[in-house]
Design a protein around this nucleic acid. Structure first.
Lengths: 263, 263
DNA sequence: ACCCTACCTGTAATAAATTACAGGTGTTTT
DNA sequence: AAAACACCTGTAATTTATTACAGGTAGGGT
């Protein structure tokens, strides 16, 4: 199933690798990533994946690639990598020497760190510094978009982690969707973004707000969703409170602005 | 987990509904749809899904939607629906009377045909004609893109098919990905919207719409602009007519989308 | 066990929006 | 000069939205 370092998902016999619980969990993760449009939501997904894989730390980044496919700039979404490490990483441009990153943007394959370290003869100083902060073993995987302008990288690590097929299968299955989600919410926000991420609309609320956006009245939405008109109004009220607005039209504008719903 | 006829994917306990084999199969289907870029590949996926669901027939279509969300045109990818039926369907514009299609482009939810037939008081002639060619019972589900310009519809049918939760769960999980795949490989064939009528909001109208966006009521705007509340409503009415919408909240969304006002 | 959240529902008063009717001024275009 | 348009205003019926009251279930986490 591994062939020239390449990984064929389509023909793999994952029945023996993944438990039913794994499979169900992956389906849900993938499904949720379809509707993930905010960093806060993305972090929740990343955390779920980290826990599913029994890792200690997780970090991700979207990468702007130049014409040669090299890193032009990158933007971190750090779940819980040690802050001091990440600061040093950015400060000292570790991305230029980190063999994991280099391997990622050239091969875009699932990496077990120790394999890559051996393969690239990684600088011992760098590797040891990472190990000192708890990043001893880990996996990394990322993709790039079809145009080759943007890439992503997802790293999971911990003090102790053995290489296992299950982890590789799960990453192969789910990272492409997290990749899409990360690209999706980082693209429009490249300029402004950030700061007030306190609000989090529930999926039901977003669903209702979307119908409001399409000009549906409360009664119409109640028919569409098979709930009472009262419940629709209840949700709308909550939405307005969460977004700190006083009218539906304002809620639509704010939600679009903040990325809770798409136009 | 069916509650008031509504369907909660995120919280559903699919452990009892889907077998391990189902889950693994879905993961593979979803994964393959990520890399599906040609009609031939897409047909294979559609066939796999049809077989997984034990249906006899399957058909799909991508739909160009107009501003109201109604069908402007559509393009079929017919796996194995009876040819004579599909010809008649296109010829006689059945899409305009087919309650399944109408329900799809308004609700974008999983439909069990018999439910929809009852709900909409489907024309018996149409239903019986379908049944005569073997399309007795079935499921339909489709989505639209964020911009609301394109939709998809996936129908599965057979002479005998009972309503079952498993089918609904599977469709909920996998159709969004087939939707993406279908949109992806059909997009090159689609004309890029092009002729959007140059609606032009007057400066006063944009001014008022901006205050609406900020959640101001008509009375408040009248005070701000030193005009009567009646005049504000007059302008709002004109705005809605120009944008072809029926609610202020919808007007805000459309105007932002079309760039008439900024967020 | 308890708290928290998401979700759902009811009644009802008040505020606001939507639609319809009918009419006005001033400026620019043809 | 007439037509077209942006802008403005009034009255009034009807439909929606907003707010407030009060309450329910179900699941997850501590």
């Amino acid at each position: 199933m591994k062939k020239n370092g390449n990984f064929y998902l389509q023909n793999m016999n994952n029945n023996d690798i993944l438990s039913k619980q794994d499979a169900i969990c992956l389906l849900d993760l993938i499904n949720e990533s379809l509707f993930c449009a905010k960093e806060k939501e993305f972090r929740i997904l990343l955390d779920k994946l980290k826990n599913l894989l029994n890792f200690e730390y997780a970090v991700s980044a979207s990468i702007n690639l130049d014409k040669k496919g090299l890193i032009e700039s990158y933007e971190l979404v750090n779940l819980n990598y040690p802050a001091q490490w990440m600061e040093a990483y950015v400060e000292k441009r570790y991305d230029l020497i980190d063999p994991i990153v280099i391997e990622n943007i050239t091969k875009y394959n699932v990496q077990y760190w120790n394999d890559t370290y051996k393969k690239h003869n990684a600088p011992k100083k760098f590797v040891n510094t990472a190990k000192d902060v708890g990043l001893k073993e880990g996996y990394t995987y990322g993709l790039k978009n079809l145009e080759g302008t943007h890439g992503t990288i997802f790293s999971f690590s911990g003090p102790k982690y053995k290489q296992q097929l299950r982890t590789e299968y799960i990453l192969k299955y789910v990272i492409p969707h997290l990749h899409q989600a990360l690209i999706r919410f980082l693209k429009p926000n490249m300029k402004l973004n950030a700061d007030k991420d306190d609000v989090l609309l529930s999926s039901r609320e977003k669903e209702i707000l979307n119908w409001v956006k399409y000009g549906k009245s409360s009664w119409e939405i109640s028919v569409i969703l098979h709930i009472s008109e009262r419940t629709v109004n209840f949700h709308v009220t909550n939405i307005m409170h969460k977004l700190d607005v006083v009218k539906r039209s304002q809620a639509v504008a704010v939600a679009i602005d903040q990325g809770y719903i798409q136009i």
